[in-house]
Design a protein around this nucleic acid. Structure first.
Lengths: 145, 145
DNA sequence: CTGGGTGCAAAGTGTTTGCACCGTG
DNA sequence: CACGGTGCAAACACTTTGCACCCAG
């Protein structure tokens, strides 16, 4: 389980300072189970740190991404969106179109397909993005009402 | 094989007018084997239609997307990017990180995995995005030099 | 000849950068 | 107390919209 505290330690270890603003960002990021756009993260962090700037959000996201602590989501068209990396191994996501909740898919069996495709196409394949979307249990119920 | 002419017919059939600008766009789209950002498409179309506006590119892309004639790519971060839909069935892409060439992956075997995930997670999964990237034969050679 | 299409300019979004001041380590 | 971090404003990049004129059907 990744906590605000652990993230702070990791940042410090990498030579980054841990400021109240960053602490507030880390808190929201660890507590949130849906993917966050910079704007959404900003809105939530503002409740704890009213004077924080959106710029700080962008800069902190960039650091967290570089350190591999958050994942970028791909399905969103309008803005980037991120999620705390909960699994350390290679994994994918199922995103709820209703509430945005993200569930990890840790068993990715694409290596075989990838090898097969490499043979067929001559490509040297070095990665893939995969994302599922649909409705989580709760949102299915809401839809049905 | 999708041609400029076939696309024009489809547009007309849907009640859209076929103008010289649109014709030029359709030509580039059918001839191109790498994915195109609006800006890249603009640049290429300008050679045939020097006075075309970027806005026309955006509006035509929107129509083609609505009619399901082009696919949107997901891996690009900075700008949207599109590709002529060559296979009519559900399929995915392998994108070359060197030259941008896109190869179709028509045998997508994710339905099984998707069903399994649905059972495990309780999600009602109604879609996925999948994209491979790597280097095509030619770009592998160039890298090796 | 009419309604959709075009191109310009301008406005709207999302993101990045320059710079002076601030506060962590 | 030095140097990275912050916040403001401004710049930047991409996309959309308003409007007058144009041309395909």
């Amino acid at each position: 389980m990744m906590t605000e505290r652990k993230l702070a330690t990791l940042l410090r270890r990498e030579g980054y300072k841990v400021t109240p603003q960053r602490r507030a960002i880390l808190k929201i990021v660890t507590e949130t189970h849906d993917h966050l756009t910079p704007a959404a993260l900003y809105e939530r962090v503002q409740k704890a740190q009213p004077h924080i700037g959106l710029v700080t959000i962008y800069r902190t996201i960039q650091i967290l991404e570089q350190l591999g602590l958050i994942c970028e989501m791909h399905a969103e068209r309008t803005s980037r969106s991120y999620l705390l990396k909960r699994a350390s191994e290679h994994h994918h996501h199922i995103v709820c179109s209703g509430c945005g909740t993200v569930t990890d898919v840790t068993h990715c069996e694409l290596e075989k397909l990838q090898e097969q495709l490499a043979k067929e196409t001559g490509f040297e394949i070095d990665g893939h993005i995969l994302e599922f979307f649909g409705y989580c249990r709760q949102c299915q119920r809401l839809k049905a009402e």
